[in-house]
Every structure is written in C-alpha cells, then in structure tokens.
Design a protein around this nucleic acid. Structure first.
Lengths: 144, 144
DNA sequence: CATTCAATATTGATACATCAATGAACGAAG
DNA sequence: CTTCGTTCATTGATGTATCAATATTGAATG
C-alpha cells in the first residue's frame, strides 16, 4: 500500500536501488571468485587508471571522505592488492600503486563488473538512462 | 578527467547523490532543530502512518533488514519517540507506536522534510523525474 | 502431547559513511 | 630559525548496511 507511496519518492528509490545494486554486485563478484566489494572495486580501478595519486586526490575523484579512503585502502592492502609508497618530496603524502596481484586482479574483475552493469540496466532505453543521469547530477548539484 | 567518466556511470551517480542528499538532509534538519537522520525519519514517518506494525512488516515496507530496524528503533527509543508494545497474541512480535513526543515530532519535522525534498529537485522537469523513477525501479527489479 | 519446522527479534562481525580531533610535516612570514 | 597556519593521513565515535547465528515462541503434524 504505502510501499507504492515510497516507491514514487526519488530519494527513497535511489537509496533502495543503490542498496540492491551493491548487494547484487557483491553476490555476483563472489560467484565469480572475487572477494571484494564495489566500493573497494572503484578505488582499485581508480588507482589502476591513474597511479601515483595521493589519498586526497583519490578521495576527490571518487567523492569519498579521506577517512573512508584510509580504511578501504587498509582492506585492499590486507588483500595485497595495493601499496602505499611514501612520497619523496613530501613526507606527509603517499603515492598509491597496485601490486602485480592488484593489476591482474583488476584486469580479470573488469569483465565481470562490466557484465554486472549490463545486467542491471537491461531493458532500459539508453535515452532514459541519460535522462536519469541528468536528474541525478542536477540533484547532486542542488544539494552539494 | 576521469571525474567525468565516473559521473557518466549511473551506479556511481546514484551512490554519490544518495550520499550527498543524506548529508544535506542531516545538516538541514539539524539547522531546524531536529536531531535525527533521514533513515530514522523514514522509520518514524512509517510508524506514524501505520501504527501497530511489527518490525518485520516495517522492514518490508521500507526495504531494510530487520537487523537495521532493530538498531534504528533502539536509537528512536533512546530519543523517547517510539515505544515497542509486546503483542498480545504472539509473544515474538511487538507492535510499534509513537510516543506523544514522537507524534508531535513527526508533525513538526514533516514540513522541514518536504521543503528539503523540494530544494533537492529544484529546476528539474517533473517528467524527467518520472523517467528517473522508472529507470531506478527497473534497475531494482533487474537486480533484486 | 511431543517433535519439528518456521517466524520474530536480537546480537556479533564486518564494511562503509560522517564529523571531529589528532600528529606529522610543509610553507610562509617574522 | 622559530612560529603559525595549512595540508595529509589516521583514528575515534557514531549511524547504517550486510550476513550469520541465536533465543524464543508459534504452528503443524505425526
């Protein structure tokens, strides 16, 4: 009854869909043998695409708090996927790089992540997705 | 550079926008004197609209885990907004009701929440929001 | 009636979010 | 060079999410 009421409120729908998609990704990745969350994945991919970043730069890029970055990096470090190399010029900073294990991990998981993405948007008109993206960006701008 | 890349991926955009809107709501509510998160708000409103629910029913309605419900209710209970009344017929269940403080709290906060919602979608064509809602519902269905 | 299976709520472990406070190191300005 | 303000990364406190395990109770069935 009020289920439908909530499902017509974009804030609720966003939250619900984010939770569903994170859960789904986690399950699918696990099925394919990857013990990683999507939040960890985004960080990993981002380091793969742009090595030698500092944590502040990384935080800006993925729009997360530096505190979150520290903790996610700790987990990726425990999994031997990422290394923090102390910066030569500025001893406060560390440059982030993937280990060789991290590199091959990204290359293998990439295919899985892409297919998960496709599964989630199957049957939706790309034009509508573009519209949704525009709406989301505008909302972020309004409140950010 | 890759900032734009991420901002064209609907999964990332949803996650980012959800985080921004939660942060924004929290700040705005605090400014108006309400010490509550939006997640707590949704639970509170839902109990207001439909009293005597069990936690399982509530969980289904707002699409959260019963574990999350337990913890959010603990916080609302600490704030003296919600009561758990043991069910007469089935001693496993409890029926949820608002305290009188909870009731007036909802009535006052409602206006603030509605105006926060408006602020977030300002300048967006309602048709586009409907499209976004459709997209989100379909994604949830695909992965749920 | 007793055994067994299912439902309800809670709790523990882990992951991620926020904000606030910290320590260390840099940079500029006296 | 010393002081002062800023930046970087980390940590602590708190809120929410997940999954798994538990205790309690109800219901069904032999």
């Amino acid at each position: 009854m009020n289920e439908e009421k909530l499902d017509s409120i974009i804030y609720f729908l966003m939250d619900k869909t984010v939770r569903i998609s994170k859960k789904y990704s986690l399950k699918r990745l696990k099925e394919e043998g990857f013990d990683i969350t999507i939040d960890q994945w985004v960080i990993l991919l981002r380091i793969h695409e742009e090595e030698q970043q500092t944590q502040v730069e990384l935080a800006k890029a993925v729009f997360k708090d530096t505190a979150s970055i520290t903790r996610i990096l700790d987990l990726l470090h425990d999994k031997k996927l990422v290394r923090r190399i102390p910066n030569e010029n500025d001893r406060r900073k560390s440059s982030l790089t993937l280990t060789s294990k991290g590199n091959s991990y990204v290359n293998h998981a990439k295919k899985v992540v892409f297919s998960i993405r496709e599964e989630g948007i199957k049957g939706i008109d790309p034009k509508d997705i573009e519209t949704a993206n525009r709406v989301l960006r505008k909302m972020a701008e309004n409140m950010g």
